[in-house]
Structure formats: C-alpha cells, structure tokens
Design a protein around this nucleic acid. Structure first.
Length: 575
RNA sequence: GCGUCUGUAGCUCAGUUGGAUAGAGCAAUGGACUUCUAAUCCAUAGGUCGCAGGUUCGAAUCCUGCCAGACGCGCCA
C-alpha cells in the first residue's frame, strides 16, 4: 500500500515557488497551503493566489503573479504557468499526469487511495445500537451505515478497527414489556408475531398506563427483578433479546454489516459499582435533589447524572463504564460514537467527566452526530407505530430493482443477487450522500429513486465500464503498457484529473468523519466518466488508442468499486 | 429562558475551510438509442446564498444582532 509516493503537484509547485521567492514566513509548507483548484478549468488546473504573498512582499498581487510567471520554468510537469490577475495558474502537462495516475492505479489496484498511516493503531467505533424489543427502523439507518462506512474508511488507512454494537438491552422498558406480556400477551402470540407482537405489547402498555399509573410501578418492580437476577424475569428478558437479535441479524445480513463486539448496555452491569466508587474516590460526586451527580457548573454545563435517587444507574454511568472497559480492552487511539445530534450535550458531559477523572485519553473520544430522521415532517414514534421498518425498506428497494431488471435486462445472470446489491445500494447511498448533520425527512419516493445522483447510478456506471472491459477481453494479467499521448481529449483528461483526487478525498472523509465526501466524489467521477463514455468510443480499430482507453476504463472501474466499498455498497459487474 | 445545529435555484443538496463568473441532481422544456448497457448523455431555463450591520484587498464561508425551523437542557436512552 502506498504511503505518499505518488506525484504531488502541490508539493512540486510549492518547491518551484519557494525557489524564486523569499520573504518572512514564505516556505514550502505555507505555499502548499495556499494552493487551490481554480473554479474553471479554462483558467488552469492549479492556482496560487498571490494575496497573502502580497502582504509579506509589499507588492501588488498582480505584480507578484506576473513576476512569478517569468521566473518559473513549466517543464516537465506543466505546459503553462500563467498569471491571470492576482492568480498564478498552472496547467498540468498531460503525459506525466496520465502516466502517474493510471500507473498508480495499475500498480495498486484496489489499494489505490489507501494508506498505512494507521498501522498498529486501534480505533473503536460504536454504531447502530438498536433497542431490543423495538423495531429496527429507518431512524437507525444513519448510525448503522455511517459507522460502517467510517469503519471501512479507517481500515483503508491502515487502522485496526473494532466495530461495537452497543445494544439497548437494559432499562425500565423491559419492566414495561414484561408487565404487558404478563397482562395481555402469551408465549404463542409472541412466537408468532415476534418483534411486532412485542411492539404491540409495548404500545398497549403506554396507552393503558395513561389511565392506570399503577402499571408504571409494576414495570419498575419487574425491572428491579431483572436486576436482582430473578429467574422468571431474566429468562423473559433473555427470550425477548434473542427474538430481537434474530430479526436485527436479517437486516445486518442484507447490509452485509458485521461487528466485532455485541457488548450492549447489560454487559456493563457489574462494572457500575466500580465506576461509582472511582468517581467517589476522586471527589467528583455530589448529592443533589436526592440524586448523585457530577457538578459541571465550572464548564457551563448542566450536571451529569450518575445515580437516580433510588440508587440505580443512568446511561451516562453506563457510557463511562463502557469507555473505561474499551480503553482497557482495546487500547484505542480513538473511540468514535456515531449517534444522533440530540445526544450532543450528553456526550460533552460524560467526556468531561472522563477528563475530570484524570484520563488524558478523554481527548480521543469523539462524538459523531447526525441529523434527525422524520416522517413527513413528523417525528418517528415507536409508541405510536409511526415508523418505517428498515427490513421493509430494503426488501421493497430490492423488489423494485428486480422489476427494473426484468424490464431492461431480462437476460441478466444472477438476477436476485444483483437486485439485492442495487436495491440495498440505493438505500445505503441515500443515507450517505448528504452531509451527516442535515436533518432528513424520509420519503419512499426519494429512497426508491434510482436516477441521477444515486447509488444505482454509480453501480450502473461501474457495470458499463466492466462491460467494455469484458467485451475487449481485458485482463490485468497482461503487461499493462500504453501510450499516454493517446489520452489527450479534454473529456478524457478531466476523468484522469478526477481520479488523481481520490486519495486526498479519502483522507478528507476520514479527517471529517464524513462519508458523504466519498459519495460526492464518486458522483463527480461517474459524471466525468459518462461524459467520456459518450464522447469517446473505446473499442476502436487503432489498437494503441483502444489499449490506452481500456486502461482508463479499468482505472475508473477500480476506483468506483473501491469508493463504493468504502460506503459499504457492492459494485456488480453487470446490471 | 439558556444552549446546539440548520437556512444556497420550485424541491433535495455541493461549495476545495476567506479567493476568480456560486455548482450538481430532481422536477420543467427541447434534443441523442442500426454504434462499448438510455438506471445514460447533451442543451435551455431557473439565484437578494434567511435579513441587517461589521472585519477584510476580497465574505455563501469569519464576528455581532435579528428572523425562521429542528433538537437539547436531573432521575428515559
């Protein structure tokens, strides 16, 4: 896997400019940071805005640009170095560019864009975390696919990632469920209806509890029994959990998402006392209104609740226990928590508590928030039954794909498999294509749209590229030499310049914990490639031209497949 | 009330962390399948970057104040 051996044009320019300019604070690194991509490719491929230099040199930026133009020798990497107003624009020489980019992709294949910077370092990623006995719905999609994508992205950079599914498998809701089950349920009904039946009982509990507050008391009592290890309570809890896990697993199978750990909230039960003791020993705990808290007034935050007045723990307590356990177990350099933006304050609070406990690694805890999913502008509500089940969404998308295949490509082999890849890909891409912080209103129409900036569009582009390679009998076993001079049209060079950007996009996506940077990039790449596809015939009589174009097609296919992989999306060879 | 996030084309969103003429997709209109998969491509049209100040050579981007929406602020998670 590459480190940073590839041709870095920004470094080259920084070096060239540094050699001919001198002044306070003007060095390679600073110049590197100033470089940007011009808004219009007619201007050039890279640009140095001279405003900042103008401050140091006390000269008009236009003048600086003009002077630099005369002092910098373009060859061999540039064909033109030209001042346009206060900008110094560089136009890349096609041959070295083409040779470099395609050469790298041929050499590295699926590893192009990857790095080894994370080697030997562990990152734990907490994502998905659905609640037991509740339906797995579209509200859980973001956490699940963002976490999975970050897992892939960081792994691609060489980190050893640990995916943790911190299941919501503890809490008063199980008391409620057992109460409802004892009153209105039966083993036969639960066996038949599974989560749907559990959900019915849960909803019934809440409607009944509105008029009968005694139910709440009964629920608390049942939860206390679970905590005390009462045999009946515990076996019901275990049964409900098993039913839920089985259903969750079907969704994870469709998404092809796996976890290294399924340690949920219940896993930390026996570690709570030790955490409370430690907090106490460090003098962080105070009593307030009967509850035990960590006061955070000094940090302009409300207090972090550690124990209720009845002495039972809260989720901050369990999160602290989990963090201590994970640090001890995995020695992480970073721990990521992919949860909704609504929990931001909660994470700020208990991150601060970890810091106050004296742990320097508090700075390695990162909350990765995402926007709220709603339904037609209304909140999702399990209690009111206003949810879209994830499994239903995925299977509907798969069915729709199947219908499209039957219509457009009825002879396709492995139809079911392809329909699954494309249907699921559409849903996953939909969740990863915009900035994760944005709130989204779920709409069936949008989720099932397969045209324009969508997963299927990327997969289709990939399949088209594969189709050309297949027809040409292209194989990577051959010696992949080609004449870079053959790839000279603007549409072709555009594709190659976009391919060049892939490694820095991967780095940016990791640095910002933002899979949508990859999504947006892949759309750009596919659009550029489709422009090339329509403008240039690949299978042509001239063998040298065909060879060069085939290599380009191979490169695009490779990067599309890699990028889709980083999003957790499959790239079928035909569709 | 306090705090956080969001506000860019009719709709959904990008916008290289302060740079050149603000870009895509959807929807609309008009074109391109005897040619490597039309889940595609090309063209046209569409803008007071929520509003008002400020900083700067330069602001969609930074600061302040408003407006609108979402979310959060002690015993749920």
């Amino acid at each position: 896997m590459q480190t940073k051996s590839y041709l870095d044009y920004k470094s080259i320019i920084a070096e060239l400019v540094e050699a001919v300019v001198s002044g306070d604070g003007i060095n390679r690194e600073n110049i590197y940071g100033l470089l940007e991509y011009p808004p219009d490719s007619d201007l050039g491929d890279l640009a140095l805005p001279c405003f900042k230099l103008s401050k140091v040199l006390r000269k008009a930026p236009q003048l600086i640009a003009a002077e630099l133009e005369g002092k910098i020798e373009p060859a061999p990497y540039f064909t033109e170095v030209k001042a346009t107003g206060p900008y110094l624009n560089f136009r890349l020489a096609p041959v070295p560019l083409v040779q470099e980019v395609l050469g790298q992709i041929i050499k590295l294949g699926a590893e192009y864009g990857g790095r080894t910077i994370g080697r030997g370092q562990n990152i734990v990623i907490d994502y998905s975390a659905p609640n037991i006995a509740k339906p797995f719905h579209v509200g859980h999609l973001s956490s699940t696919v963002i976490g999975n994508s970050l897992f892939k992205i960081y792994s691609f950079l060489g980190y050893n990632c640990v995916g943790i599914n911190h299941l919501g498998d503890w809490g008063t809701q199980f008391g409620k469920l057992i109460t409802a089950y004892k009153k209105w349920g039966s083993a036969a009904e639960v066996k038949k209806g599974l989560i749907k039946e559990l959900m019915r009982l849960y909803v019934k509990f809440h409607t009944e509890a509105e008029t009968d507050p005694a139910l709440e008391e009964e629920a608390r009592e049942w939860f206390r029994k679970i905590e005390e290890g009462d045999e009946e309570a515990l076996s019901l809890w275990k049964w409900f959990k098993d039913i839920s896990l089985e259903e969750f697993q079907r969704v994870y199978d469709l998404l092809e998402i796996t976890f290294q750990s399924w340690a949920g909230e219940s896993f930390y039960n026996d570690q709570i006392d030790a955490v409370v003791d430690e907090l106490n020993a460090k003098g962080l705990l105070t009593e307030s209104e009967g509850a035990t808290i960590v006061n955070l007034d000094a940090y302009d935050m409300p207090p972090c609740l550690i124990l209720k007045k009845d002495g039972s723990s809260l989720y901050a307590t369990r999160d602290i226990a989990a963090a201590l356990y994970r640090k001890k177990t995995y020695q992480f350099v970073k721990a990521l928590y992919v949860t909704g933006i609504a929990q931001t304050l909660h994470f700020q609070q208990w991150f601060k508590v970890i810091e106050l406990m004296g742990y320097q690694w508090a700075k390695d805890l990162v909350h990765i928030p995402f926007g709220l999913v709603s339904l037609k502008g209304e909140k999702l509500s399990t209690r009111k039954g206003r949810v879209v089940l994830l499994e239903e969404l995925l299977t509907t998308a798969i069915q729709k794909t199947q219908a499209i295949i039957d219509e457009k490509n009825p002879g396709l082999e492995k139809k079911e498999e392809v329909a699954r890849m494309v249907g699921v890909g559409a849903v996953v891409f939909g969740a990863l294509s915009v900035n994760r912080i944005k709130d989204v209103t779920f709409s069936w129409e949008e989720a099932l749209n397969f045209e324009g900036e969508t997963g299927p569009y990327l997969q289709y582009t990939h399949a088209r590229a594969c189709s050309i390679l297949r027809k040409a009998g292209f194989s990577t076993d051959e010696d992949l030499v080609f004449d870079p001079e053959k790839l000279a049209e603007p549409v072709t060079l555009k594709v190659i310049k976009t391919l060049y950007l892939f490694p820095e996009k991967v780095m940016a996506a990791a640095a910002e914990y933002e899979p949508s940077i990859i999504s947006r990039y892949l759309i750009d790449l596919a659009q550029d490639f489709n422009g090339f596809y329509h403008g240039c015939q690949v299978l042509v009589d001239d063998p040298d031209l065909q060879r060069a174009r085939l290599i380009l097609v191979f490169a695009v296919k490779t990067v599309l497949a890699t990028g889709l992989g980083l999003l957790g999306i499959k790239a079928p060879e035909q569709m």
